[in-house]
Simulated assay, not measured.
Amino acid sequence: MTGQLISIALTVDQHDGGDYFWVLLESFDHSMEFEPLMEAAAGFSTYVDALQAGYAVLKGLSENLNIGPREEADDPVETADGGTFL
């Protein structure tokens, strides 16, 4: 079974030196509060370059782009009477 969709946002910050850095943010409780998940290690000279690089990283977080990045689903466990629970 597929786990729940992970709430991830992509943004671009401009640091004091003028370079642009992509930042991936995650909402761990599916609220509107986001915390940093990943950030570019090196800056980019333009906003669009940082945005495109961040988008590539975001796409790489998903094995299947049709369903998006998902939490790992727990494997069903079979009980002694033949039932299953998650």
Rank of each mutant, 00 (worst) to 15 (best):
T79L: 14
Q14R: 15
F44H: 15
E71H: 06
N66W: 11
F21D: 02
D74T: 11
T2N: 10
G3H: 09
D19G: 06
T84V: 11
F44G: 12
E35N: 13
I6V: 15
M38Y: 09
P76D: 09
L37C: 00
I6N: 08
G68C: 01
A41P: 13
L61W: 00
Q14A: 01
E39I: 09
H30I: 01
I6P: 01
M38H: 12
V77H: 05
P69W: 05
A53Q: 13
T79D: 10
K59E: 15
E78A: 07
I67Y: 00
Q52D: 06
D81E: 12
A80Y: 09
G68T: 10
L58K: 02
I8L: 07
D74G: 06
V48M: 10
L65N: 11
I6E: 14
D81Y: 03
V12I: 05
F85I: 04
Y55D: 11
S7I: 12
P76I: 08
A73W: 07
L10D: 08
M1W: 01
T2G: 04
S7M: 06
G43N: 05
E33L: 01
E63W: 04
G18L: 04
P36H: 01
V48D: 15
L61N: 00
V77F: 03
G60R: 11
E26F: 03
L86G: 14
D75L: 04
L10W: 00
G43Q: 03
F21G: 07
R70D: 09
E33Y: 08
F21C: 02
Y55K: 15
L37D: 02
F21L: 03
E63V: 05
D75T: 04
L58W: 10
E72M: 02
P69Q: 11
S31C: 08
G60D: 15
E78T: 09
F44A: 03
P76Q: 14
Q14T: 14
M32C: 11
P76R: 10
V23R: 14
V12T: 03
I67H: 00
E35L: 11
E72G: 10
G18W: 04
D19K: 12
M38F: 07
L58E: 13
D81M: 12
V12D: 05
A80V: 14
E35I: 00
L58T: 09
Q4H: 11
A56W: 06
V57S: 01
E39M: 02
E35V: 08
A42P: 02
N66C: 01
G60F: 03
Q52P: 03
F44P: 02
T79N: 15
S31L: 12
G83P: 03
I8R: 10
E78Y: 01
D13G: 03
V48H: 07
N64D: 15
D74F: 06
D13I: 10
V77D: 13
Y55R: 15
